[in-house]
Design a protein around this nucleic acid. Structure first.
Length: 243
DNA sequence: GTGAATGTTAACAG
DNA sequence: CCTGTTAACATTCA
């Protein structure tokens, strides 16, 4: 469950533990677990697909990757990567990457690159796109330095909604289309958040995993596109190829 | 049972 | 040294 909006949901579910002290730590994460014991959680934050558990002197970064999961108050998987026990309640993470960040977060993260963050800066994103003109838009939409939080679902939905063929060269896309794309990335990310909470995310997919274009009824193309060769679903009729 | 998938990084080859 | 490919991780679902 790991695109940006899903991590925002995780942050919201974990929020009741903010301000609480970690009484016990468990799990097989390759970090010094004892550092967390007895420490109070200051806040939960997210940057893109990262969940950040903030303590006074350091931060624990959780990345769910493809298969990671979590549970609250009950252990649902046999192998715990990181488990935090509080006076009331527990927080479990499974099959994820865990890392301790000792630097201040402001040195590590550019909040303006996070599509879900209030500090998201579309002008900066546009400037970065200018630097990446020779790349395909399908690759750039997965670049966490430009669109932190965007993943393959968001990529496919945003490209369909802004009617751009995934293999389009960034430099060849007209500025107005770029504007539409930047708007749609944020818009769809928050719709993703809303629909995910409602459990209707899949129902609202217009392109991702789809076989037929809902706009013109012809078959979608399924193709592994770009340098990263992630699957793209697109309509050759509705989505223009710029090159 | 098989293979692919909402992801990323480290190791390796050339 | 730089670039591109492959493996690894580990879970769920079609």
């Amino acid at each position: 469950m790991p695109e940006g909006p899903s991590i925002v949901i995780l942050k919201e579910l974990a929020a009741p533990f903010a301000g609480k002290k970690v009484l016990e730590v468990s799990g097989d994460a390759p970090i010094d677990l004892e550092r967390l014991a007895g420490q109070k959680i200051i806040a939960f934050k997210t940057w893109g697909k990262h969940l950040l558990i903030c303590f006074k002197q350091f931060t624990v970064r959780i990345h769910l990757m493809l298969f990671g999961s979590y549970s609250i108050n009950e252990q649902t998987k046999p192998r715990v990567r990181l488990g935090l026990t509080f006076a009331k309640g527990e927080l479990f993470f499974y099959a994820c990457l865990v890392k301790i960040i000792d630097e201040p977060l402001s040195e590590v993260y550019d909040w303006s690159a996070d599509v879900m963050n209030q500090a998201w800066d579309r002008r900066k994103a546009r400037a970065k796109l200018k630097q990446e003109g020779d790349r395909m838009i399908c690759d750039v939409l997965l670049d966490q330095n430009i669109f932190a939080g965007s993943g393959n679902i968001i990529k496919n939905e945003v490209l369909f909604r802004s009617r751009i063929q995934p293999e389009s060269l960034v430099s060849a896309i007209p500025p107005k289309k770029i504007t539409a794309l930047l708007t749609e990335v944020v818009k769809y990310s928050f719709e993703f958040l809303h629909w995910k909470k409602e459990n209707t995310l899949k129902k609202h997919w217009q392109a991702h995993t789809k076989k037929i274009c809902p706009r013109c009824d012809i078959p979608f193309v399924k193709k592994y596109t770009g340098k990263n060769k992630r699957r793209s679903f697109f309509c050759t009729n509705c989505q223009e190829l710029y090159e």
